[in-house]
Design a protein around this nucleic acid. Sequence first.
DNA 1: GTGAAAGCGCTAACAA
DNA 2: TTGTTAGCGCTTTCAC
Lengths: 355, 355
Amino acid sequence: MDKKIRIKDIAQMAQVSVGTVDRVIHNRGEVAQESYKKVMGILEKTGYKPNLIAKTLGSNKTYRIAALMPNPEQDEYWNQSIEGIKQAKEEWTQYGVQLQTFYFDLYDKKSYISLAETVYESNPDGVLTAPIFYQEAVRFFNLCKTQNIPFVLVNNNIEQAGSLSFVGQDLYQSGRVGAELLHLNEKENGTYAILHIYDDIHNSTHLNEKEKGFKDYFAEQNNGYTYKVISVDLNYTHEPTLEKELSELFNEPTLKGILVTTSKGAYTVSKLLEKNGKNGIRLVAYDLLEENLYYLKNGIIDFLINQNSKRQAFIAVSQLSNHLLFKKEASASYLFPLEIISRQNLTSYLNSKQH
Amino acid sequence: MDKKIRIKDIAQMAQVSVGTVDRVIHNRGEVAQESYKKVMGILEKTGYKPNLIAKTLGSNKTYRIAALMPNPEQDEYWNQSIEGIKQAKEEWTQYGVQLQTFYFDLYDKKSYISLAETVYESNPDGVLTAPIFYQEAVRFFNLCKTQNIPFVLVNNNIEQAGSLSFVGQDLYQSGRVGAELLHLNEKENGTYAILHIYDDIHNSTHLNEKEKGFKDYFAEQNNGYTYKVISVDLNYTHEPTLEKELSELFNEPTLKGILVTTSKGAYTVSKLLEKNGKNGIRLVAYDLLEENLYYLKNGIIDFLINQNSKRQAFIAVSQLSNHLLFKKEASASYLFPLEIISRQNLTSYLNSKQH
DNA sequence: GTGAAAGCGCTAACAA
DNA sequence: TTGTTAGCGCTTTCAC
């Protein structure tokens, strides 16, 4: 009745051998019209579902996934990603998924190009990458496509790149959430700043999305108040200049809040805001980095928006593995929720197994 | 080198048969001291990890899990739980996990008792339940323990019950988050209410936790302001009385905010608050129920705290399945993050695969 | 075109 | 106390 039907059963019903059934299931031809139809019919009638367990055991294949990711030592955010990859590796290794990581320099396009080449030449069965460098990534993807190597993107999306899947957040909406959190319960005119602090090379597309969301949010508030929205780009490398520019920003008399879009930048802003006195300026930043937690707890940072890079990477590997092993179709985009972290719900996130 | 070692390999190294190795791995005795030690040594030296795929295929066992849960038709929150269970069923059925659901009446202890009996008599391999009724649940657990049936709890915990695992949230902290969200940026004295609206039978322990957190939060604010915290219990069944009492509450002149602890109660409060005019009273409620979403979007509800009952149930089944199939030890408590839902991050939650 | 059969790693029943 | 062996359901090779 409810019992599982096996290939063997199908074969029996169709009066053919398991070999033939297998051939029609996998479309590997060499099968007579008549047999094909008969088997196909029974397959559909019975709603046959293959036993995935037996399938992976039987095929005894191994798959190689290459992960082309930023060097975890350069940035805690990316370090978390690597943790997620390691976790996924642990889980999938028993299914015959092998995972090799390639770390490129976050501030050097060339290292991406050359490692992409290495990855390509290793001829993996699947690729995972964070496409930090737009042009270079696109070129890499085109290579992958020539060899039919499926690839999944994490962190930031490149539409139309032909990826198997994108795993990350809606950055536009993320900017809106940032704006909302700064604006909560404010019943006055005021200035709101979105602040991009980056090291050297600027990955603009990524941050632009957040900025667009941020601006749109305020533009849409028609409640009688007027809001001035400013966008500030600062370079991280020259500390004195940076501090000077930030101090100027803080002195803007109507400044109500700042959204710092880069997870690392939050530290500098917080430090300075702590020194200068917070003066009612709200601060929202990204990610559960150690420094951010410190400033969240002591009230300098009001909210964090969590991007959960660890789980993003974990899911990305899983999507790819499922695709390779079980031919499961991955969802074109696997969007993560925009998690709001406050002083009170922080520990519940830190304790949660899902983070 | 990095190649997987099989039982066969271990047997070869230890100069015994696979049967013997299997016996020591599973501690099923009948093995000479000497062989045992030898095999054990090699097992440890090589760090042998069984191939779970082969294991499940080979053993060809099926496990029966019984889920004793509230009737999903009585409450959308519990309906979501059942969705999570169904999802988990889908995922685990291929591993030979069978899942049978038993729905008890949310407002009738007797139905719990009698169904618990039925579950017990069906002699399942594992049990999942939401221990709404404290006493009755404890009695049921004691039964389970006599038969060594592992059981996991969802939604609310019963400490010391001897469960395999608890899946849910920290309710005390949840109350604190609710308080925080009402109190955000308020720089005045004021009254804050925690409101329990329930149908009939009152499951006090559950709500008490939230209330304690709520009160503690305000008690700890030593910022020069004084807060009056009130706790209101209302019965859902008599609508006119309910509305009258709520109106009285709204008229409290210093009232700043209300936390509604029961997901269903939020609807009534919102409706009335919409009718009477919101007047700056903040409202925080629980869960992404349809009505709540409506009132969140139109600004009556300021924040929702998401309990994600669907995923709780999903995880609970997974914990149990993993335990039965793979003897994985489940974590004693699997705590979910206290997710803050605002107007701007709502869609990211609704779209997320994890919710 | 098709069927038979070995094998994936593990379990468990049965012999020895 | 130990070893052997026949499965579990599917894949894949090889002979017909």
